[in-house]
Design a binder for these strands. Structure first.
Lengths: 116, 116
DNA sequence: CCCGAATATTGACCACCATCAATATATGAT
DNA sequence: ATCATATATTGATGGTGGTCAATATTCGGG
């Protein structure tokens, strides 16, 4: 699918704002809003937090359904949104799916606020 | 109303996480999500951007309805959400309402990502 | 090859949200 | 006091999003 989620340099077109643009254009705003939309849910914030706190740097879905009070399909749904936003990385090993923070993604997202 | 919006130290209870807490609790996550919810709309990002870019440091509603393709009531609605999130400050002078960035609010929001 | 386990997908439901039209409120000027 | 202007509020509507139950998929083991 590949939603080119502002984080990690996307494709050629609409990659950057017109240099020192005075204010956000409609398209840039829509792209940036996608990342914040992914962060705008308490359970997704907790998912990020749990993955980040894990010593191994990664968690499988079975480790995430417990702490949150949600069913497995709902957790999978939230994880998908976080992956599509460029915040989480998904690696399937055997039957298990391991999720880990995309390195630098949170810092890059923080940077979006500075360049508003 | 006063929604104690995570930004600028709220009231006494539930002010901070339990020091070096390993992962986000449900309540903290809900509070933090409120700020990101406010940022999760393209038009609100553009509003913040325009206010920030203004040399005077403030803009009135009439300056904001033009750039965005929205009616005046909708802009007022978005501005209210940004004020309640602790991101914008509203000052009424005469018939006009002037909106300005709350100093340090964007930086503090960026910090929320670091302390996930 | 079939079974069980882990995860993903589908479809449905309900709540919330963004937007607008209409109206209300407030303030300055005449 | 009246009027015009700037902003806020209300009510309604269409769309989006979070959640679950049920089902599908994928993979390792026997």
């Amino acid at each position: 699918m590949n939603l080119l989620p502002v984080l990690e340099s996307a494709t050629e077109d609409s990659c950057c704002a017109p240099a020192g643009s005075p204010a956000l254009g409609a398209e840039e705003a829509k792209q940036k809003a996608l990342v914040f939309k992914a962060l705008a849910d308490p359970n997704r914030l907790r998912l990020l937090s749990i993955v980040k706190a894990e010593a191994a740097g990664e968690s499988c879905v079975c480790d995430l359904t417990g702490p949150l009070d949600l069913g497995q399909p709902t957790v999978s749904h939230h994880l998908k949104i976080l992956v599509e936003a460029g915040l989480l990385h998904r690696e399937k090993r055997g039957t298990w799916a391991y999720y880990s923070l995309v390195p630098g993604a949170l810092e890059e997202t923080a940077g979006l606020l500075a360049t508003l």
